[in-house]
Computed example of a mutant assay.
Amino acid sequence: MVSLDRFDTFKAVVEAGSLTAAADLLGQTRAVVSFNIKRLEAELGVTLLTRNTRRLALTEAGERFYQRCLSMLEEARLAIDEARSEHTELKGTLRITTTVEYALAKVVPALELFSALHPDLNVQLSTSSTHADLISERFDVALRLGRVLDSSHRAVQLCTFGILPVASPAFVASVVPIDSVHTLEQTPWLEHGRVGELTITEVSSGVVRPYQPNPCKARIRADNSSVLQAFALTGQGVAILPDWLIEEDLRTGRLVHLLPEWQLSRQGVYALYPDTRHLPLKVRVFIDFMKAYA
Rank of each mutant, 00 (worst) to 15 (best):
T199K: 05
V32T: 15
Q229T: 09
P109G: 06
D288E: 14
V166I: 03
Y211S: 10
E248G: 00
H278K: 11
R51V: 14
L40T: 01
I220F: 13
E202N: 13
V148W: 09
P242R: 01
L143F: 10
V256W: 01
P215S: 11
I220V: 13
Q267F: 01
V148C: 12
L134F: 09
E197K: 10
R221E: 14
A22I: 09
R219Q: 15
I37P: 11
R51P: 03
E43C: 07
G237S: 08
A22G: 12
H182F: 10
F35G: 05
A21Y: 01
E63F: 08
K282I: 05
L26R: 13
S115E: 13
L111E: 04
L245Q: 03
E89C: 10
F289M: 01
F65I: 00
Q267M: 11
L164G: 00
F139G: 09
V207Y: 10
L245Y: 02
A294M: 14
F171P: 04
E247Y: 02
N214P: 04
T47W: 09
E247I: 09
N214F: 03
D275Y: 04
I135W: 06
E82R: 15
G146S: 06
D8A: 13
L245A: 02
Q186M: 15
G62S: 04
L264H: 04
L113F: 06
R30H: 13
L158S: 02
R251S: 03
E261K: 12
E101P: 08
